[in-house]
Structure formats: structure tokens, C-alpha cells
């Protein structure tokens, strides 16, 4: 029987992991270690549920409920001087727990501090847009929708941004293969020539490293030269290599060692 390979995460896996390997952790410290972060966290805790909070690599991470995302960011922006949303996106945890994790990376220029607000939502759940607070979320949320299929409520223009509008599937999900799925392989053929041309053209080669053993149009092999486009699937003639030194074809017709000049300076 063939070994079962799970289809919920088709990304590359390491081919060998030591049985006794225990991955170390990036150090986390208490929020109370940093006075500025502690004050910010208190302000959040006063109004909202905080599921977890810690400092990792000099930045505070606060885990909140997904419903509070707008209100928490509003509080941090208006009262705590976190004026810029540098980045936001999602992480796919569907295989592990059926959830998306969404993070908002915000920056306070006055305090020189960065906070990451995180929350989790279910696969089919939508999240509230923060575009009203930070205009930069307009494009970030579109990108998140495009890549993960996370729907954002109250967004002014919830359309794909990087992929074509009629694309199917969400490329950054773990279930989406690196080389693209079946839809991707036929996308250009269908759009440009129509579905009826599928048999003539064939699916797109989406693996740039693929080499076809019998393709004599794009690949050549030294020592096995055959005419362009020849069919070699039934075997190929061997081309014997004879070098110049072994009395093969001489590269230069009329070579006279006496008259030749060796150039020492290439810029002369």
C-alpha cells in the first residue's frame, strides 16, 4: 500500500529530521520588563480581553479576540500614539487548527516602539476592516484576501490585487502547491486560445527546472547531437567525439605556430 501523504499542507518538508530533535524557542520576556509596553498593555487590558502578551525580539506581541481588532487598533492609534500600520497579513494554520492568524504590525514614532497585534479567525469567518484607521490597510487587506481568501468586512474595494481577477484558489494557503494547481496550468491556454485548444497545446509547464529527456528542440546534449526536432524516443545515434589532439578535425585550417603571436596585454 502506498504511504498516505496529507494534502492539507503540500509545502516542502524536510526530508530528514532527527528523532531526538527538539526545536529551541526564541526567548520571550514579560511585558512588565518594559515600562512603555506595560503602560500600553494596561490600556488595552482595561477595555478588552487580552489572551496573551509577551515581548519577543524587542517588540510586544498582544493576542486579542478577532472581534476587537478595530477597537484595539483605534485605541492604540488615538490614545497611545501608534500612528502607523507598517504591515498586516495572515498566517495559515488551517491544517493544525482550522484557523487563520492575522497580525497587525504597528509603529509608534513618538515612542520608537513596535507592537504586533494578533488574532485568530475561522476559515469561513470574516474580519473587520481597519482601513478607516489606516489607509495602508486598504491594499494590505486586499492582498490578504487575494493570497489567503480571508474576507474583510466593510472594505471599500474587496477585489484581488496581485492575481488576475478571475483567478481561482488562494496561492499562499498551505494546500496550494508551489507550482500551481490544475486551474493554473490551464489558465493561459483557456484565456488566450479557448478550452477547445487544450488538446493541441497541452497544460502549461509550471516547473521551470523541468527537463524533457526526448525534447530535441530546447535541449541538446554534448556527444549526442541530433538534428533539431528529431524524434529520439526510439533511441538516438551516437555521435563519436574526436578531439583535435587525437587527430580529429583541426579547429584552425592554416595554423602556423611560427607566425602566431601571443598577446600579453589585452588592452593594447
Amino acid at each position: 500500500m502506498r504511504a498516505y501523504t496529507p494534502k492539507d499542507d503540500v509545502q516542502k518538508k524536510s526530508y530528514y529530521t532527527d528523532r531526538f530533535w527538539v526545536a529551541p524557542q526564541v526567548a520571550k520576556s514579560e511585558v512588565s520588563d518594559d515600562a512603555v509596553f506595560a503602560a500600553d498593555l494596561e490600556a488595552i487590558k482595561a477595555k478588552f480581553d487580552v489572551l496573551d502578551a509577551y515581548i519577543q525580539v524587542e517588540q510586544m506581541v498582544v493576542v486579542i479576540n478577532a472581534n476587537d481588532n478595530y477597537a484595539v487598533l483605534e485605541l492604540l492609534k488615538n490614545d497611545r500614539e501608534y500612528t502607523q500600520l507598517s504591515e498586516m497579513s495572515a498566517i495559515d494554520w488551517l491544517a493544525q487548527e482550522g484557523k487563520f492568524e492575522i497580525f497587525y504590525q504597528i509603529l509608534s514614532m513618538a515612542k520608537r516602539k513596535r507592537i504586533r497585534i494578533k488574532c485568530k479567525i475561522d476559515e469561513k469567518e470574516a474580519i473587520q476592516s481597519v482601513e478607516k484607521l489606516f489607509r495602508s490597510a486598504d491594499w494590505s487587506e486586499r492582498e490578504m484576501y487575494d493570497m489567503f481568501g480571508v474576507v474583510v468586512n466593510n472594505h471599500p474595494f474587496m477585489k484581488r490585487i496581485l492575481m488576475p481577477e478571475d483567478w481561482e484558489g488562494f496561492p499562499l494557503r498551505k494546500t496550494y502547491p508551489l507550482q500551481g494547481d490544475e486551474f493554473a496550468a490551464w489558465y493561459e491556454v483557456d484565456r488566450i486560445f479557448g478550452k477547445e485548444a487544450r488538446e493541441i497545446i497541452g497544460p502549461e509547464n509550471r516547473d521551470p527546472a523541468r527537463i524533457d529527456r526526448y525534447d530535441t528542440k530546447r535541449f541538446s546534449r554534448l556527444g549526442h547531437e541530433v538534428p533539431f526536432g528529431a524524434d529520439i524516443s526510439q533511441g538516438e545515434p551516437d555521435t563519436p567525439l574526436v578531439y583535435q589532439e587525437q587527430e580529429g578535425v583541426f579547429m584552425i585550417d592554416k595554423f602556423d605556430a611560427e607566425k602566431s603571436v601571443v598577446i600579453s596585454d589585452r588592452h593594447r
Partner: peptide, 14 residues
């Protein structure tokens, strides 16, 4: 062949 394995955690570095 296998690649380095950094610790479990996350960073955002600007």
C-alpha cells in the same frame, strides 16, 4: 542539504 533550523518564534525586522 537540509538547511539551518532557526528556533521557533517570529520576528519583524525593519
Amino acid at each position: 542539504t537540509q538547511g539551518m533550523r532557526p528556533p521557533v518564534g517570529e520576528v519583524y525586522i525593519p
